[in-house]
C-alpha cells in the first residue's frame, strides 16, 4: 500500500516537474504575441523538461526505481521521450506556421544567431537519438555502441535545447531562471551519481569469479564470491548490473540472479547469461576463474515477495527463465507448500536452460509442476509443443486460477502474447508481473 502511494506520489511529482517550466514561462513570463506563440513555446518547454528528466529516470536511485521497477521505468523513459518528441514536433509546426523557414531547422548556421543555431543542433541530436533507439537493430548498431551514442546525444540534446531556450528568453522571470538552473543541476547530479558515485562505491566492493560453466541454450552461469566485503542479499527475481572490464568501465549489463535467494549474504551468487551480443557472446565465455567483477544492485520489483498469493504461475521463455529459477528455488528452499507451476518454453529439448535443476526440483517437491514447451520437439516427444497458448495453460491451471500470481519473463513477442493470453483467461492485470530485458 505504501509502495502504491509512493508510486502515485512519484507520478504526480513527475507531472509537476514536466510542466512547471512551461506553466511558469506562460503564466508568469512576458506576454506572448498570440495564443499560437504561447502554445508553441509552452510545448517546447514541456519537451525540454521531459528530456532533462530522462536523466533522472535512469540513475538507478532506489528512491526513484523502488515503486516501479527498473524495466517499467526504462519503458517509461523510452515512451515518454516520444511524448517529448511529439511536443517538439508540434513546436516546429507552430514556429514554421509563424514564418520560420524550414532551413533554419536543418542548418545551424542559416539564421546566424545562437538561438537558432542551438535549436537546430538540438533537433539533430533528437533525430539521431530517435533513429538509433527505435531502429538500433536495423542500423546494425551494437548495444555497447548504442549506449555510448545515447549518452552523448542525450547530453547534447539538453545542452543545445537549454541554450536555445536561454537565448530566446528576452526577460526571464527569476523563477524561470531558477527553474532552468535547477533542471541543469538535476542533469549534472544524475550524471554524477551514475558516472562517479556508483563506480566509486562499487570499486570498493569487488567480486571474484569462482566458476564459469556452460548451460543449455547457449548460456553460461557465472558464480561469484564477495572479495573482502559482506556480499549482498536479494529478493528472488531481482537482478544486478554487472561490470567485467572494471568498476569505471562504461558498460554495465543487467543480469538476473539464477540461484536461490535463501542463502547467507556472503554465499556465492549465480548469474546465468545467454550469448546474445558482443559482451555475452565473447567476453563472458572468456572470463576465467579468479577474474574480478563489479556488481551494482540488487534491483527490481519482479519478485513474489512483493506479490503474495495462494500460489504462483511462472511462464518463462529461453533465458528469461533465470529470474523464475531463482523464485522457484527460493520458495522451495523455504519449504513453501503453495502450488507452483512453471511453464518453460524453448526451441528444443537440448536448449532448455537450467533443465536439470527443474527436473531435480520437480522430483523432490510435489508442489512444483514443471511443464517444458518445445517449439521444435524431438520425434518421440510426448510433452507440450508449439507456443504457450490459453488452451495449453488451461490444461495445467487449477480451477480458481484467477487468484494466483503470475510471473512472466521471456522475449518481447512472447511477453506481448502472454499479457493477451492471461487477460483472455480472466487473470486480473494486477496479478500479472513481467520483466522485459530486450528493450532496444
Amino acid at each position: 500500500m505504501v509502495l502504491v502511494l509512493r508510486g502515485l506520489a512519484g507520478l504526480i511529482l513527475y507531472a509537476l516537474l514536466a510542466t512547471a517550466p512551461a506553466l511558469v514561462a506562460l503564466l508568469a513570463g512576458p506576454a506572448p504575441a498570440d495564443a499560437l506563440a504561447a502554445a508553441s513555446s509552452g510545448l517546447a518547454w514541456v519537451g525540454l523538461a521531459i528530456f532533462a528528466l530522462e536523466f533522472l529516470l535512469v540513475t538507478r536511485i532506489h528512491m526513484v526505481t523502488g515503486p516501479y521497477g527498473q524495466d517499467a521505468l526504462l519503458q517509461f523513459h523510452r515512451e515518454i521521450a516520444l511524448v517529448g518528441a511529439a511536443c517538439v514536433a508540434a513546436h516546429l509546426v507552430l514556429v514554421g506556421w509563424r514564418g520560420v523557414p524550414p532551413r533554419a531547422f536543418v542548418d545551424p548556421f542559416a539564421m546566424g544567431t545562437v538561438a537558432f543555431g542551438a535549436g537546430s543542433l538540438a533537433l539533430w541530436a533528437l533525430g539521431a537519438l530517435l533513429a538509433t533507439s527505435l531502429a538500433r537493430r536495423l542500423l546494425r548498431l551494437s548495444y555497447e555502441a548504442w549506449l555510448l551514442l545515447h549518452r552523448w546525444l542525450g547530453l547534447a540534446l539538453v545542452v543545445a535545447a537549454g541554450l536555445h531556450a536561454h537565448a530566446l528568453m528576452a526577460s526571464p522571470t527569476p523563477l524561470l531562471k531558477a527553474l532552468v538552473l535547477g533542471y541543469g543541476a538535476l542533469v549534472l547530479l544524475s550524471l554524477g551519481w551514475v558516472r562517479v558515485w556508483k563506480p566509486w562505491s562499487q570499486a570498493r566492493r569487488p567480486w571474484v569469479l569462482v566458476d564459469n560453466r556452460a548451460e543449455r541454450g547457449r548460456a553460461r552461469t557465472l558464480v561469484l564470491r564477495p572479495l573482502g566485503h559482506a556480499g549482498l542479499a536479494f529478493a528472488p527475481g531481482q537482478f544486478c548490473w554487472l561490470r567485467t572490464a572494471g568498476p569505471w568501465a562504461r558498460e554495465a549489463h543487467p543480469v538476473s540472479m539464477s540461484c536461490s535467494a535463501e542463502r547467507a549474504a556472503d554465499a556465492p551468487l549465480e548469474f546465468t547469461i545467454k550469448a546474445l551480443g558482443d559482451w555475452s557472446g565473447t567476453r563472458v565465455p572468456g572470463l576465467a576463474p579468479g577474474a574480478h567483477l563489479w556488481l551494482d544492485g540488487p534491483y527490481g520489483v519482479f519478485t513474489p515477495e512483493r506479490h503474495e498469493g495462494p500460489g504462483f504461475v511462472f511462464i518463462g521463455g529461453g533465458v528469461g527463465v533465470t529470474p523464475l529459477a531463482s523464485m522457484v528455488q527460493t520458495l522451495l528452499d523455504r519449504d513453501d507448500a503453495r502450488p507452483l507451476l512453471l511453464v518453460h518454453a524453448a526451441n528444443a529439448w537440448e536448449g532448455l536452460c537450467l533443465r536439470e535443476r527443474f527436473e531435480e526440483r520437480a522430483r523432490r517437491h510435489p508442489n512444483l509442476r514443471w511443464v517444458p514447451v518445445l517449439e521444435s520437439p524431438p520425434a518421440d516427444w510426448g510433452g507440450e509443443r508449439g507456443y504457450v497458448t490459453a488452451a495449453l495453460l488451461r490444461r495445467y491451471l487449477p480451477p480458481r486460477h484467477t487468484s494466483l500470481q503470475y510471473f512472466v519473463c521471456g522475449p518481447a513477442p512472447m511477453m506481448d502474447a502472454m499479457e493477451r493470453v492471461l487477460a483472455e483467461l480472466g487473470v486480473p492485470a494486477d496479478r500479472v508481473h513481467t520483466e522485459r530485458y530486450d528493450m532496444v
Partner: peptide, 30 residues
Amino acid sequence: MTHRLVRRVVLVLGALFVALVLLAAWLRAA
C-alpha cells in the same frame, strides 16, 4: 507493472501535459 499499464500511464500523462499547456496558452493570450 505490466507493459500495457506503463503505456496507459504515458498516454494519460502526455495528454495531460498538452492539455495543460494549451489551456495556459489560451488563458495567457485571452
